[in-house]
């Protein structure tokens, strides 16, 4: 099964890092195939940042997102620019303090999290992307929790690991609560 994920936000939000960590988690720690690409041209357009991850059990041919199954957006401009990339019925995950939905959102399954607010509570808004990755794992299950954390551990300098672990678990637990409520 080919799964396509697109991350979008602003430069500095760790959008590229989030994509890289996710793709590496799938490839090296979940034993799947994955391809990670980033859009360099978007960065030049004034702060926008986006990355793409394709995950599959088989060899991946076309390396980029054609019709995203999951769209994770952390800025209004990313929502505006990339919503058309999300396939009908796809999962839209938003940073709820930074993204306002419009009528187009009705075509998608929506999950919201105040990732930046949580990150600030933990100690630094810089870990908002890691909160988001925890949330993403809980909601989607595309990458296992263990694989994602291992990939984060490999990417983040040791002295920041504790803060990142808090961020990851915060996002994960927040997501799991939503998932549990849905099941009821």
């Amino acid at each position: 099964m080919r799964v396509e994920i697109k991350f979008g936000g602003l430069g500095g939000q760790g959008i590229i890092t989030a994509g890289y960590i996710t793709a590496k988690a799938a490839a090296l720690h979940d034993g799947k195939e994955s391809v990670f690409t980033q859009d360099y041209s978007a960065e030049a357009r004034g702060g926008a940042s986006t990355s793409e991850v394709v995950i599959s059990d088989k060899m991946i041919n076309y390396p980029q997102v054609l019709h995203a199954d999951y769209l994770v957006v952390m800025s209004q401009s990313a929502y505006n620019d990339y919503l058309h990339k999300l396939k009908k019925g796809g999962v839209l995950i938003i940073e709820e303090d930074l993204v306002k939905l419009d009528e187009r959102a009705k075509d998608f399954k929506i999950y919201k999290i105040p990732a930046t607010r949580f990150a600030e509570e933990i100690g630094n808004p810089i870990v908002a992307n890691i909160v988001m990755l925890g949330f993403f794992v809980a909601i989607t299950g595309v990458v296992s929790k263990e694989a994602m954390w291992k990939s984060i551990e490999e990417r983040i300098p040791k002295r920041f690991l504790e803060m990142n672990q808090k961020a990851f678990l915060k996002g994960y637990e927040y997501g799991m609560e939503i998932v549990k409520k849905e099941k009821k």
């Binding site: 890289y20 490839a27 195939e33 391809v35 990670f36 690409t37 360099y40 991946i60 390396p63």
Partner: peptide, 9 residues
């Protein structure tokens, strides 16, 4: 440019 910058296992 695609291959140069894309990551795979």
């Amino acid at each position: 440019a695609m291959l140069a910058h894309m990551y795979e296992k």
